[in-house]
Design a protein around this nucleic acid. Structure first.
Lengths: 203, 203
DNA sequence: GCTTGATTACACCGACCTGTGTAATCTAGA
DNA sequence: TCTAGATTACACAGGTCGGTGTAATCAAGC
């Protein structure tokens, strides 16, 4: 009870809810299922969360992890985002963006969920913008928006197609947009010749 | 009974299911709700569809509308896609892509739904690729993929943010990608002035 | 020991879900 | 008018859901 054990139990509940909600859907998983998965009684679960809605909100807030600071060059950080996406796509337990899925599942009526989802999406956009500002890109805000479109687009495509190559496609598009904005990306990311000499994906 | 009235009733059911499923979610709407909305008995609904799953499949297949042929230049057709998206975003009854939402809602277990969603996404990609082939773009396939990423990305972003400007951002990004691929888009789509030397494709 | 709080098992509620069974009613075509 | 199919109302089965009430049990700190 010394609140160390309390929050420990709370975390166990949240971790299990996260796994089940994310992989199978929020509406598809009942509180009984979560309790059974942990091996606790439903009563205990309700001792830590007043309602399923509260558990859903806590689940989404726990998913809201901020990006860690990096000392690598901003353009590398930006492109590394897509590499990270590709790795996540390749994992068996990837099932799209939990925030987008929650909004799609719970509908427009659920204001609380939508609020969290908006905050998350905006935080991602701001992160891109900050990196672009570091690079001195003039239209950083607009370009940041375009980059999040590529991120969310590849996530949505992978959700239905299960194709990690969507992340690579997004990365290639991002390179074109960055280069168009005057960002120098070194020689390995060779300039993309339109009609000829192909920059083709490594095989 | 002459199967004209039968299919008429079937269409009424489908239209109502479409409205409710799309706006409020497939899991959120029961067959009773659909029947009540039309003013028919639940029995009648089950006389036309053997199960809710069949109704869901029919709903998605009805949403699978193929693009009509156009005599406008391919590059205009491509860009018009994003204008159309912007108009749909601005409507208050827009709630994302029904196929992505269905996959998110019903989970990975529902193979039938996923199959339809994949077919739809691929048809969109192929449409882009055909337009790009008409333009003589060399890497039409890869670019088509990138364009659908922008489409789906703007849809996902608008779903959570309710911001039709996402379609405009996607269009601007699409222009950059097209220009980079050597597509000439006329003077109205002015070259994007960037801080430094913009990499500009020959024309 | 005793107390206190967490957890347990378990029954239960009301609501909603998909789907069926049935018998009465309506309606169009012969 | 008669017939046959469609539709109706309505009850009901069997299940799941979120959430609660209750009384017993367990473990730790005094």
């Amino acid at each position: 009870m010394p609140s160390a054990e309390k929050s420990e139990m709370k975390e166990r509940i949240l971790a299990t809810a996260d796994k089940l909600f994310y992989l199978q859907g929020i509406r598809a998983i009942g509180v009984d299922t979560i309790a059974a998965e942990i091996g606790i009684s439903k009563r205990t679960l309700y001792n830590h969360f007043p309602s399923k809605d509260a558990l859903i909100a806590a689940y989404l807030e726990r998913r809201f992890v901020h990006a860690r600071p990096s000392d690598k060059p901003p353009e590398e950080q930006i492109l590394a985002t897509f590499d990270s996406l590709e790795r996540r796509f390749a994992a068996k337990d990837f099932r799209g963006c939990p925030f987008v899925n929650a909004v799609a599942e719970l509908g427009p009526a659920d204001r609380a969920v939508k609020k969290i989802a908006i905050a998350f999406k905006e935080s991602r956009r701001v992160w891109f913008r900050e990196r672009l500002n570091e690079l001195g890109v003039s239209e950083a805000d607009a370009l940041a928006t375009q980059l999040v479109l590529l991120v969310d687009g590849s996530i949505a495509q992978d959700l239905v197609r299960d194709d990690p190559a969507m992340a690579r496609a997004a990365k290639e598009a991002a390179k074109v947009l960055l280069r168009n904005a005057g960002v120098d990306m070194g020689d390995d990311t060779a300039p993309k010749p339109t009609a000829k000499r192909g920059k083709r994906p490594p095989h």
